[in-house]
Amino acid sequence: MQENAIETRALRKVYKAPPQKRGRRAPSPARTGGAPILHGKDVVALDALDLTVPQGEFFGLLGPNGAGKTTTIGILTTRVIATAGEASVAGVSVQREPSRVRSRIGVVPQRPNADRSLTVVENLVFHASYFGVPRDVATKRADELLEKFSLTEKRDAKVEALSGGQQQRLMIARALSHDPRVLFLDEPTVGLDPQARLALWDILRDLHRQGRTIIMTTHYMEEADQLCERLAIIDQGKLLALDTPAKLKAQAPGETVIEVTFDAPVDGIVPAVQAIDGVSKAEARGAMLRVFSERRGETIPLLIAAGEERGLAVKDIHLDRPSLETLFISLTGRKLS
């Protein structure tokens, strides 16, 4: 029977504001996955999320920091308890059988958290042993994984001796050490240099080719575009769009986003700008004027002139071609990062 790798129904997570006792702190951004959405004092990190991910898919959760990506991964990996709704992973309910879910998943955390009291190879062997993998099998598999991820020469080194990219590769190797069905990666390339990032992309593509289901969060548009078969764009705990990167890009407004930053707030300029030929939408954000236009070459001088009429001088001009980024901006009014 072909069950879905992930299914969520009306998934919701609210972080309760703790009673203001002395010595108690409000939940830190780290604990809420950075979610800043405040309703009174409670934080709604995730609001009615419905997702279905078939087996074998490379699925991406794209959104800015605080969108609810980490909370979603947290619920699916049994580390966060949903306030309402249902979620299942590899056919098992995360609410009812968290231990069984854990036996079927591998998790690569946002920041490497290798066991620093152990060597590199021990990290893999012990992790597999927490899943009941016999020691000889675990050791054999560990050596294969180290080979695959170019870590063999660091086999018996302490974790501290690894570079950031090597630590991240070790985290992926560890997540695979018990041969899970679904692999979760939370912002796996944050903090990596471009070369290490590309190397990691190759590893992930390879894992996907072998038929592994991969769920990845990212706030890098290019990463999502390059790797994922389907993408969920989420912001403020809500699903905004869900499709293949190609179809999502086709949904992006067919216009260029022009951002002109002036030396003072641009309130009141919007009606005049909207009257400019070719402009479909304009919005003011402090000193920044954002315009969606089909004719960028002709629009820019008119925008500058509109500012000058109000005594505003241009400080910066930025253009974004139609992309996931401009789709995101048009959906949320904000940038990804």
């Binding site: 990996t77 968290p98 231990s99 854990r102 958290n113 290798a114 066991d115």
Partner: peptide
């Protein structure tokens, strides 16, 4: 700080 215990919290046991 280190969150190192998280690899054990992923073990398939309560």
């Amino acid at each position: 700080q280190t969150k190192e215990i998280e690899d054990r919290l992923l073990a398939p046991i309560p």
